[in-house]
Simulated assay, not measured.
Amino acid sequence: MSRDAKVDAYLDKVAPFARPVLEHVRARVHAVMPEVEEATKWGAPAFLLDGKILLIMAAFKQHLALNFWRGQELRGEAASDEAMGQFGRITSLADLPADSELDRLIAQAAELSRSAPAARKPKAAPKPAAELHPEFVAALDGDPAAKAQFEAFPPGCRREYGDWIAEAKRDDTRAKRIATTMGNLREGKKLHWKYEGC
Protein backbone atom coordinates (compact mmCIF):
# COMPACT_ATOMS: atom_id res chain seq x y z
CA MET A 1 0.00 0.00 0.00
CA SER A 2 1.53 3.29 -1.13
CA ARG A 3 0.95 6.04 1.42
CA ASP A 4 2.28 9.55 1.03
CA ALA A 5 3.67 11.44 4.03
CA LYS A 6 2.14 14.66 2.66
CA VAL A 7 -1.31 13.07 2.82
CA ASP A 8 -0.60 12.00 6.42
CA ALA A 9 0.41 15.58 7.24
CA TYR A 10 -2.77 16.89 5.60
CA LEU A 11 -4.92 14.52 7.66
CA ASP A 12 -3.15 15.60 10.85
CA LYS A 13 -4.29 19.20 10.25
CA VAL A 14 -7.96 18.72 9.31
CA ALA A 15 -10.87 19.43 11.64
CA PRO A 16 -11.72 16.52 13.98
CA PHE A 17 -14.98 15.70 12.17
CA ALA A 18 -13.17 15.31 8.83
CA ARG A 19 -10.37 12.92 9.71
CA PRO A 20 -12.44 9.72 10.17
CA VAL A 21 -14.27 10.35 6.91
CA LEU A 22 -11.07 10.99 4.95
CA GLU A 23 -9.35 7.99 6.53
CA HIS A 24 -12.34 5.83 5.60
CA VAL A 25 -12.24 6.95 1.96
CA ARG A 26 -8.48 6.42 1.92
CA ALA A 27 -8.90 2.87 3.24
CA ARG A 28 -11.62 2.06 0.69
CA VAL A 29 -9.50 3.34 -2.21
CA HIS A 30 -6.53 1.21 -1.13
CA ALA A 31 -8.76 -1.83 -0.56
CA VAL A 32 -10.27 -1.61 -4.05
CA MET A 33 -7.15 -0.49 -5.92
CA PRO A 34 -4.02 -1.62 -4.02
CA GLU A 35 -1.81 -0.27 -6.80
CA VAL A 36 -3.10 3.29 -6.41
CA GLU A 37 -0.56 6.00 -5.59
CA GLU A 38 -1.17 8.86 -3.18
CA ALA A 39 -0.17 12.42 -3.93
CA THR A 40 -1.25 15.96 -3.17
CA LYS A 41 -2.81 17.97 -5.97
CA TRP A 42 -3.79 21.61 -5.45
CA GLY A 43 -2.95 21.12 -1.78
CA ALA A 44 -5.41 18.24 -1.27
CA PRO A 45 -4.97 14.45 -1.06
CA ALA A 46 -5.35 12.71 -4.40
CA PHE A 47 -5.24 9.12 -5.58
CA LEU A 48 -3.56 8.36 -8.90
CA LEU A 49 -3.55 5.34 -11.14
CA ASP A 50 -0.86 5.21 -13.82
CA GLY A 51 -0.26 8.91 -13.19
CA LYS A 52 -3.91 9.87 -13.77
CA ILE A 53 -6.06 11.33 -11.02
CA LEU A 54 -8.90 9.06 -9.89
CA LEU A 55 -10.13 10.92 -6.86
CA ILE A 56 -9.40 14.04 -4.82
CA MET A 57 -10.67 14.64 -1.29
CA ALA A 58 -10.55 17.99 0.47
CA ALA A 59 -11.45 19.17 3.96
CA PHE A 60 -12.81 22.60 4.75
CA LYS A 61 -13.80 24.23 8.04
CA GLN A 62 -17.27 22.71 8.27
CA HIS A 63 -17.46 20.13 5.49
CA LEU A 64 -15.39 18.07 3.14
CA ALA A 65 -15.68 17.09 -0.49
CA LEU A 66 -15.04 13.96 -2.47
CA ASN A 67 -14.36 14.50 -6.16
CA PHE A 68 -13.94 11.72 -8.71
CA TRP A 69 -11.95 13.08 -11.62
CA ARG A 70 -14.41 11.57 -14.11
CA GLY A 71 -17.32 12.14 -11.74
CA GLN A 72 -19.92 13.30 -14.25
CA GLU A 73 -19.43 10.08 -16.17
CA LEU A 74 -19.65 8.04 -12.97
CA ARG A 75 -22.50 9.77 -11.18
CA GLY A 76 -24.43 11.48 -13.98
CA GLU A 77 -27.63 13.03 -12.65
CA ALA A 78 -26.83 11.85 -9.13
CA ALA A 79 -23.85 14.21 -8.93
CA SER A 80 -24.36 17.14 -6.56
CA ASP A 81 -23.76 20.71 -7.60
CA GLU A 82 -23.96 22.18 -4.09
CA ALA A 83 -20.24 21.74 -3.31
CA MET A 84 -17.00 20.71 -4.90
CA GLY A 85 -17.27 17.04 -5.77
CA GLN A 86 -20.14 14.80 -6.68
CA PHE A 87 -21.50 14.07 -3.18
CA GLY A 88 -22.29 17.55 -1.91
CA ARG A 89 -21.22 18.77 1.52
CA ILE A 90 -19.95 15.83 3.54
CA THR A 91 -19.86 16.30 7.32
CA SER A 92 -19.79 12.70 8.60
CA LEU A 93 -19.42 9.07 7.54
CA ALA A 94 -23.19 8.92 7.18
CA ASP A 95 -22.96 11.35 4.22
CA LEU A 96 -20.82 8.91 2.22
CA PRO A 97 -22.39 6.29 0.00
CA ALA A 98 -22.44 2.73 1.37
CA ASP A 99 -19.09 0.97 1.14
CA SER A 100 -20.36 -1.30 -1.65
CA GLU A 101 -21.37 1.75 -3.73
CA LEU A 102 -18.17 3.62 -2.94
CA ASP A 103 -16.12 0.55 -3.89
CA ARG A 104 -18.06 0.23 -7.15
CA LEU A 105 -17.41 3.89 -8.00
CA ILE A 106 -13.69 3.54 -7.24
CA ALA A 107 -13.42 0.44 -9.46
CA GLN A 108 -15.42 2.11 -12.21
CA ALA A 109 -13.23 5.23 -12.00
CA ALA A 110 -10.16 3.03 -12.40
CA GLU A 111 -11.69 1.29 -15.41
CA LEU A 112 -12.56 4.63 -17.01
CA SER A 113 -9.05 5.90 -16.35
CA ARG A 114 -7.47 2.86 -17.98
CA SER A 115 -9.75 2.32 -20.93
CA ALA A 116 -11.87 5.28 -21.93
CA PRO A 117 -10.51 8.53 -23.26
CA ALA A 118 -11.58 11.57 -21.28
CA ALA A 119 -14.86 13.01 -22.42
CA ARG A 120 -14.35 16.10 -24.52
CA LYS A 121 -16.10 19.21 -23.41
CA PRO A 122 -18.00 20.88 -26.22
CA LYS A 123 -16.45 24.09 -27.37
CA ALA A 124 -18.22 27.15 -26.14
CA ALA A 125 -19.75 29.37 -28.77
CA PRO A 126 -17.53 32.37 -29.45
CA LYS A 127 -18.54 35.54 -27.71
CA PRO A 128 -20.03 38.22 -29.93
CA ALA A 129 -17.84 41.12 -30.97
CA ALA A 130 -17.49 43.80 -28.32
CA GLU A 131 -20.04 46.59 -28.54
CA LEU A 132 -18.15 49.86 -28.63
CA HIS A 133 -19.37 53.13 -27.20
CA PRO A 134 -20.16 55.62 -30.02
CA GLU A 135 -17.61 58.13 -28.68
CA PHE A 136 -14.90 55.46 -28.80
CA VAL A 137 -15.93 54.52 -32.36
CA ALA A 138 -15.66 58.20 -33.35
CA ALA A 139 -12.18 58.44 -31.76
CA LEU A 140 -11.03 55.32 -33.61
CA ASP A 141 -12.40 56.64 -36.90
CA GLY A 142 -10.40 59.84 -36.37
CA ASP A 143 -7.10 58.00 -35.79
CA PRO A 144 -6.37 55.39 -38.49
CA ALA A 145 -3.15 54.16 -36.82
CA ALA A 146 -4.87 53.53 -33.48
CA LYS A 147 -7.83 51.91 -35.25
CA ALA A 148 -5.52 49.59 -37.19
CA GLN A 149 -3.80 48.54 -33.95
CA PHE A 150 -7.15 48.03 -32.21
CA GLU A 151 -8.39 45.82 -35.06
CA ALA A 152 -5.13 43.83 -34.99
CA PHE A 153 -5.70 42.85 -31.34
CA PRO A 154 -7.42 39.54 -30.59
CA PRO A 155 -11.14 39.77 -29.78
CA GLY A 156 -10.58 39.45 -26.02
CA CYS A 157 -8.25 42.47 -25.97
CA ARG A 158 -10.70 44.54 -28.00
CA ARG A 159 -13.51 43.49 -25.63
CA GLU A 160 -11.44 44.54 -22.59
CA TYR A 161 -10.99 48.04 -24.00
CA GLY A 162 -14.63 48.26 -25.12
CA ASP A 163 -15.97 47.11 -21.75
CA TRP A 164 -13.63 49.38 -19.78
CA ILE A 165 -14.83 52.41 -21.70
CA ALA A 166 -18.51 51.39 -21.65
CA GLU A 167 -18.44 50.82 -17.88
CA ALA A 168 -17.60 54.46 -17.18
CA LYS A 169 -20.54 56.05 -15.39
CA ARG A 170 -19.59 59.68 -15.98
CA ASP A 171 -18.92 61.38 -19.28
CA ASP A 172 -15.62 62.86 -18.09
CA THR A 173 -14.44 59.43 -16.90
CA ARG A 174 -15.34 57.93 -20.29
CA ALA A 175 -13.47 60.74 -22.08
CA LYS A 176 -10.34 60.09 -19.94
CA ARG A 177 -10.54 56.36 -20.66
CA ILE A 178 -10.90 56.97 -24.38
CA ALA A 179 -7.88 59.31 -24.32
CA THR A 180 -5.83 56.71 -22.40
CA THR A 181 -6.94 53.99 -24.80
CA MET A 182 -6.03 55.99 -27.87
CA GLY A 183 -2.54 56.68 -26.47
CA ASN A 184 -2.08 53.00 -25.60
CA LEU A 185 -3.24 51.93 -29.06
CA ARG A 186 -0.79 54.28 -30.78
CA GLU A 187 1.96 52.57 -28.76
CA GLY A 188 0.58 49.08 -29.50
CA LYS A 189 -0.31 48.43 -25.85
CA LYS A 190 -3.13 46.24 -24.59
CA LEU A 191 -5.30 47.49 -21.73
CA HIS A 192 -3.36 45.55 -19.09
CA TRP A 193 0.06 45.97 -20.69
CA LYS A 194 1.70 46.77 -17.32
CA TYR A 195 1.06 43.20 -16.13
CA GLU A 196 2.27 41.31 -19.19
CA GLY A 197 5.30 39.18 -18.60
CA CYS A 198 4.97 39.36 -14.80
Rank of each mutant, 00 (worst) to 15 (best):
T40Y: 08
F47L: 08
W42L: 14
E35N: 07
K52P: 10
W42I: 08
A65E: 01
K52S: 13
A31G: 04
L66Y: 00
A59K: 07
K61P: 01
E37R: 12
L54W: 04
E38W: 03
A65F: 07
K61L: 09
V29Y: 00
N67S: 15
L64W: 13
K61E: 03
E35D: 05
M33Q: 04
L49V: 03
M33G: 01
P34W: 00
P45F: 03
M57W: 10
G43F: 11
D50C: 13
E37L: 10
L49R: 05
W42R: 11
E37K: 11
G51W: 00
L66V: 04
Q62N: 15
N67K: 14
F60K: 07
A58Y: 03
R28I: 14
P45A: 02
M57E: 03
F47H: 07
V36G: 01
F47V: 02
G51V: 12
V29R: 04
G51Q: 10
T40Q: 11
V36I: 12
N67V: 15
V32F: 04
A39D: 02
E38S: 15
P45K: 04
K61N: 10
G51H: 03
F47I: 00
A59P: 05
L54E: 03
K52L: 11
L55G: 06
P34T: 02
A39M: 01
P34I: 01
E38H: 05
A58Q: 09
A65H: 05
A65Y: 02
D50Y: 08
V32M: 08
